[in-house]
Design a protein around this nucleic acid. Sequence first.
DNA 1: CAATAAATGGAACGTATATTCCGTTTTCCG
DNA 2: CGGAAAACGGAATATACGTTCCATTTATTG
Lengths: 280, 280
Amino acid sequence: MTDESAGPPGPVTVTELIERIDAVAPGLPKRLRQCATFTRRHLHLLAVSTVADMARAAEVAPSVYIRFCQGLGFSGYSEMQALFRERYSEFRPDYSVRFANLREGASPDAAPGVDRLIADFAESGHKSLLRLRNTVTSSAADRIASDMAAARVVHLVGARRAFAIVANMAYLLDKMGVETQVRPAAGLIATQAALRPGDIVFAVTFAPFSQETLGFAREADAAGIVVHGLTDDESGPLAEVARALLVAREDEVAGFRAPTAAIALSTALCVAAGALRTET
Amino acid sequence: MTDESAGPPGPVTVTELIERIDAVAPGLPKRLRQCATFTRRHLHLLAVSTVADMARAAEVAPSVYIRFCQGLGFSGYSEMQALFRERYSEFRPDYSVRFANLREGASPDAAPGVDRLIADFAESGHKSLLRLRNTVTSSAADRIASDMAAARVVHLVGARRAFAIVANMAYLLDKMGVETQVRPAAGLIATQAALRPGDIVFAVTFAPFSQETLGFAREADAAGIVVHGLTDDESGPLAEVARALLVAREDEVAGFRAPTAAIALSTALCVAAGALRTET
DNA sequence: CAATAAATGGAACGTATATTCCGTTTTCCG
DNA sequence: CGGAAAACGGAATATACGTTCCATTTATTG
């Protein structure tokens, strides 16, 4: 017979590959099963790793990993890896055409090009992150992190666009054992009574600045509570009340901004606070 | 002199690489500048492409691309590529050692180096954004955007880490005239009745996956409502219910992740949906 | 417990890739 | 316009990688 392969045909999609691995894994000998379980958990490494890398990571010999691939229906490691490299860069065959489209700007068809928008926001994110290093003063960041770590409760305030930042911080700080309270956009004054000595306020607001957030910060400041903040304009209204102020300016795409730099910065801040707290 | 290299030292982070390219590009001859502009636009291909691929895509000879790498301070293409492959292959440390990792690289004094953490998260953000362009399938993004634009109400579900993403989307979609409802983490079943024909559900969940979010998505799917989603594992449980699935995998810093790529992706998606809605 | 089959890991092999070399072309100054 | 320096691209070379082979070890069965 011309097709001597007794084994089943090789998977042509990632979904098929996963199903195949799950199907054969239980009946596999020790080393081969190591390949299966590790590969299943680290599928994303396939595109960028050599067979030696994968084998070492799965704690098997390279030849064993090759046999694992072959047992799945591939001719070897390279063929299996190709499955992932294709998927990672879909336009590989159309390089020149695609590149021309990029140069020209808008794509020829009427579609608004979600693809291109994603690329634009990714590029915009790069720029925002690059600028982040220039706008942040490390002394302010240090002070905020240590105050957060020492605080009884960290009160987080932010509305509209800033609310996502605050939500992310609340999640992180909570996981790290720092007690937080997220102040809702409405009814701020009513909850003012909950502020007590030892608490701090972290206010987040971007232009155009939220009056509710600023109002809460001012009242807290007047009550003697330490207020820190994050904004996108170092000379904005938040600078007047915040003792330490972080600045994250976002690049924009056609007038829209993703809070990329702010998310990165605030995450770093929370991790730093968590590290300080567990340290002492 | 022992160190004969007149050129500057090679970049050791993606951030430095981007800055270096932008700095030298203007003064470069024709072919080398082609390398610069193409590389700058398609950084994400570096991890999965050979030098021949990159050269062909940039429409230069392989040797020219090598010289481009060397002009940047690398010994060759492989060294530059390693910059992008390194971080991918790191394993996830256990929770207990994450903070220990942080202190290890910190400055000698007791301070945990918030400054350094910010730089690390910025670098991590770059890598997440680079990978974003490899993991997103444009057909899925197109479909989600058009479904969102056409939907009566977009129901957003996300808990914990995913909640910040959902909050950002709610703000954006709302601003663009797309009606949204954010489903709270608790009491999901009670609100199930609010789902009506013409609505769609957008579910966001990252590993370890939220049972509440998955449960809501499953119920909506069973009720015949279109469910789309965003996650960080294309083979995760959300893949079973979502008709179109977006994937944003985040790079990590000592075990901690900022939702940088997810924020950029979801923002692009919302802007696309808004553009579609106002267009018609 | 012995005999047989399967599995394993290291070493050898062939191929594909990155890198260097050098003749040719283009660009830059005088 | 002419000479020198830089840049370019294709061919040659070195290296790294995937793959196969085979001796040894481990599991299986009568």
